[in-house]
Amino acid sequence: MPDTQSDVAHLYLTDVRTRMRNLKALGEGALVQLTEADWHTVLSDGGNSAAVLVQHLSGNMHSRWNGLRHGYQAGLDGETAGRNRDAEFEDGKLSADKLRGVWDGGWAVFLETLDHLSPADLTRTLSIRGETHTILEAVQRQVMHYSGHIYQLVLLVKTLRGDGWQTLSIGRGGSAAFNASMREKRP
């Protein structure tokens, strides 16, 4: 008899791994359009630059997921004691190359953790700032969080590039042609 709960958990993990890799690629599609100076540009007082968004995402990914990187461990806290979250929102004026390394490092931790999670892990618990979450809840919390910041990044870069923006999705006026090409690909 099939284990429906395990099947759903497996489907969820497969889907979230794919979607988060696609989200990373979306962010990278925006980042490659930045000039060196653009990395540190904010659109308004109190706003975040691309550099700050990258620093924050990476800091969060390291804090939340490094302890689970090689599989579940009971008693884990997803807010590491050494994290300085406030410093993530201060532009360290790192070069574009260093910021790409920060980006890659954070995503490596998060994606490796997703790859090591098993369906059974999703109902296990961890703490984030003293609040208990199932692994499923913690993953979903971060899916929302990371998506929000990636779309901030896309808007920031799109605004900075103006007419030079290279779209990361279906371009305006291109829906009919895109839909037709998708239909042609179907058997």
Rank of each mutant, 00 (worst) to 15 (best):
H56Y: 08
T125D: 05
A108C: 13
G171T: 03
E88M: 11
M144C: 11
I150L: 05
W65C: 00
R141C: 02
S147F: 08
Q142W: 08
L126K: 02
G130F: 00
H56K: 02
I150K: 01
S169R: 08
Q140W: 04
W107S: 03
D86G: 06
G82F: 15
K98E: 15
T159H: 10
S58V: 03
Q152C: 05
H133T: 03
L111G: 14
D91F: 10
D104Y: 15
R129N: 06
G71A: 03
Y151D: 13
E131S: 07
L99W: 07
L153Y: 12
T134K: 03
H70A: 03
A138Q: 13
T80A: 04
L114A: 09
G101Q: 11
T123I: 14
P119G: 11
E88G: 13
S58L: 04
G173K: 12
T132A: 14
L126M: 04
I128N: 05
N66Y: 00
V54Y: 11
S118M: 13
R129I: 01
F89M: 01
L136M: 14
T167P: 07
I170Y: 07
H145R: 10
G162W: 11
D115E: 08
H70V: 02
E112C: 04
L53E: 10
R69L: 10
G164D: 08
G162Y: 09
T80H: 05
G71E: 01
G105K: 15
L57V: 06
L94S: 09
S127I: 01
H62C: 13
A81N: 12
L76K: 02
S118I: 13
N66S: 05
T132M: 12
D77K: 02
T167Y: 00
G92C: 12
T132S: 14
Q140T: 07
H116L: 01
G148S: 15
S127T: 07
H116M: 04
Y151L: 12
